[in-house]
Structures are given as structure tokens and as C-alpha cells.
């Protein structure tokens, strides 16, 4: 069970208080109608699922109810940072395949 720091509450809290929000930094196309089916499908369905560093959203559901970003290692489950929505991660994956 993880311990997650909410960047808004500035507290390290139990995973029980949070819900997972999927991969972070996915932007909705500004004009969906201009997307081809393939482009729209890529936005809708395709996720990175890396082995290692992963940027993901969490919601402090039983706390401040806000969404924020977490950089987590999917192998060791280490949480490397938490940062507010709209900010960029400080920790990036070293290897290829990571696009930020």
C-alpha cells in the first residue's frame, strides 16, 4: 500500500485516501472533429505503460478532492515526486520510449 504526498494538502497520506487517475499529461485535442479516427483513437485508447518511470494522475478523493500528478516507478513502486496539475515533472525517464 502506497503512501502518497498530496501537493495541495502538503501531507504524506495513505493510498486509501486517493484514487488513481491514469496517465498524466494527456491533452485533449483542441478540435476533436479535425482528428482522424486514428488520431482520436490514439488520444482515447493508447497509454504508455512503461517499465520504470511513469507520470500519472491521482485524486485526493477523501481529502481535498483535487487531482495532481505523481511520478512513480512502476517496477519498485517508489514515488519520486508529486506536483500540481499544470506543472511539469522534475524526474524524467532516462531511457527511450518516454515522451514528455
Amino acid at each position: 500500500m502506497l503512501q502518497i504526498k498530496c501537493p495541495y494538502c502538503q501531507e504524506l497520506r495513505e493510498e486509501d485516501e486517493f484514487s488513481y487517475g491514469g496517465e498524466a499529461h494527456i491533452e485533449r485535442p483542441a478540435n476533436p472533429e479535425a482528428c482522424s479516427d486514428e488520431e482520436w483513437g490514439a488520444y482515447l485508447f493508447f497509454r504508455k505503460n512503461p517499465r520504470g518511470v511513469h507520470h500519472e494522475m491521482w485524486n485526493h478523493a477523501a481529502g481535498c478532492r483535487r487531482y495532481f500528478n505523481v511520478t512513480r516507478n512502476t517496477v519498485t513502486y517508489e514515488i519520486l515526486e508529486s506536483y500540481p496539475m499544470g506543472e511539469k515533472p522534475a524526474v524524467l525517464a532516462a531511457g527511450p520510449g518516454e515522451r514528455n
Partner: peptide
Amino acid sequence: LAWLELWHQTEWP
């Protein structure tokens, strides 16, 4: 409620 918050907080703050 979580769905509304998600869109407001992540896409249209």
C-alpha cells in the same frame, strides 16, 4: 462528481 472535477481541474481550470 469525480468526473466533473477531473475535467474541470485537468482541462478547463
